[in-house]
Amino acid sequence: MALLKTFKDIGNYFREIAEGVASLIRGMKVTGRYFVKPSEIVTQKYPENRAELKMFDNFKGELVLLHNDKNQHRCDACYSCERKCPNGSIEVISSRVTGPDGRTKRVLDKYVYHLDSCTFCGLCVEACDQDALAFSQEFEHAVFDKSTLIKVLNHPGSTAEPKEEEHKETKE
């Protein structure tokens, strides 16, 4: 009886070894399959492929104030983006200007964007009624100097795009 048990134990011992080796081979087969089939490899060669690397259209890179080809933006300095921003990453600096028709309106002086504290939640773009803001496709945010992360988004010399008033006047 004891002898039979010993034989059984020896049998189990060798069976466990065989099963173990078989499980390793099964795993190696998976890796081996990709070794001989390099077409299924999905890695990219970054940064060599920078030229053809394209982000999705919705990608939230960094905030930009959209400008048209006449260097005009659509921001009317309503502050809704600044109020919606949870981290205080946006500072809108504006002044009141009286136009030739005698009406005072707000004009954007400086649109300061703190990329260092931005969490890319997208509330500013959602909040903008004028569709003046968008996210760019830029994703390489690493810089050597922290102060370069504070950006002025309105281009130098840019003006507000005239639209609402003109439409009203034409209607009248």
């Binding site: 999705f56 919705n58 990608f59 939230k60 890319f120 997208g122």
Partner: peptide
């Protein structure tokens, strides 16, 4: 990324 614009912290 295609829908929300972010990969990890989508909000």
């Amino acid at each position: 990324e295609e829908t929300t614009g972010s990969r990890l912290t989508q909000s």
